[in-house]
Design a protein around this nucleic acid. Structure first.
Lengths: 224, 224
DNA sequence: CCTACCGATCGGTAGG
DNA sequence: CCTACCGATCGGTAGG
């Protein structure tokens, strides 16, 4: 029996009812209608980088616009508010985190839980520390700036993500390889990983692989 | 040989040269000159609470003033800038954290390293999660808002705090009770503890003592 | 510590 | 997506 739960996201359908904003004024320069999404994503990537670097409140929408060569009012053509940009960054972060996690679980089949756990930890570090992966760190550290409704919405994605961890921890616990209560262990372990955002430096110190090995060794006993 | 390093802070002498600001205008209402310091500390406690709750950028100096019944300009009689308030919060947080840690180390004498470690972890949780202890959480989560000079200054206090951990971890490692490299283990363990600020709820779930037990069990093997 | 104020910046919008 | 702009808020200060 595989211990790795599939957490492929359900189709989402909560684009807001007011999302049918039509372009006004100057028409598209080219026939290529689809670079609309590209500009939007450019904004999102710039926002993620700046939010991570300076924080949500310390980043102005003007900063974000300038980072992609737009003028001050233009981001509001793509997003209806600064808060909507923050939420979009976090949502994209969670979707890619869930996708990476699912991929890590593919094909581990009936592997030993310690092997599966190594895959989950490795994927988590990659999501947090991989170059250009600013989206999830923003989610972790700018949570406070969300509205209540946004928080509720994101909580579902987070629960979905963490769903994969519990059965693996339980399997390890049954085998005597985990020596703390599963629920607290999950919180402590995820905390240890999440905090790495604060000190990890890709240019010096341990690599992501070394980090993963250290974490697995620290938290779980050998299956010997 | 005791494994617990004394980290009593050295006398600090870096009150800035411009700290001799004299009171102007309306004289003190009473003869009690010494409630000056009390007002300053009231401001600090209110700032810590608000910074923790809403973040540094989202808290205005007006909010802080209102929280202690002052008017908008008055905090600047006690602190020369908002940034100086942030630094003062963090500095006070570190001093009390170091004091609590030193106390936890007193009298453990030649106890087994696992016992000493339990004391360090317990003290750390108390510093982070004890009721009214907002100062260190602010330090952990608002680090980004410091100036470079402030960061350098605080780094010394942080290094002093973490000094106590290394020899204990090394002792545990020698005994085979710690299964990851000491340096990475320290980063991961402190991260697990620091992250508890995000999810701990004094009104439900585990108590600080249960948390401490779970952490010790998770990270360290029995000395059996 | 209060009053009154300043300059700067910010999120957001109308209209094209 | 740009131009031009508004109202609100903010950190900080002079003077008492």
């Amino acid at each position: 029996m595989s211990v790795c739960v599939s957490t492929t996201p359900p189709k989402h359908k909560h684009r807001t009812a007011t999302a049918d904003r039509r372009p006004r004024g100057r028409p598209r320069k080219t026939e290529d209608e689809r670079d609309d999404g590209n500009r939007r994503h450019e904004l999102l990537a710039a926002a993620a980088r700046l939010f991570r670097l300076h924080g949500f409140d310390a980043t102005s929408t003007r900063d974000i616009a300038a980072a992609v060569g737009m003028h001050s009012g233009s981001p509001f053509y793509h997003f209806k508010s600064k808060g909507a940009m923050l939420y979009a960054v976090m949502e994209e972060g969670m979707r890619s985190a869930i996708a990476r996690q699912s991929k890590a679980c593919e094909g581990v089949g009936a592997a030993a839980p310690r092997i599966v756990m190594r895959g989950l930890i490795r994927a988590h570090f990659e999501t947090l520390l991989g170059s250009g992966n600013d989206f999830v760190p923003v989610m972790l550290y700018e949570h406070r700036s969300l509205s209540a409704a946004q928080r509720t919405s994101l909580a579902k994605l987070q629960a979905q993500y963490e769903l994969a961890w519990t059965p693996v921890l339980e399997a390890l616990s049954r085998r005597g390889q985990l020596r703390a209560p599963v629920k607290l262990a999950r919180l402590l372990i995820l905390g240890a990983l999440n905090w790495s955002v604060q000190w990890f430096d890709a240019k010096k110190g341990a690599s992501i692989d070394e980090l993963t090995d250290a974490a697995v060794a620290l938290f779980f006993e050998d299956g010997a």
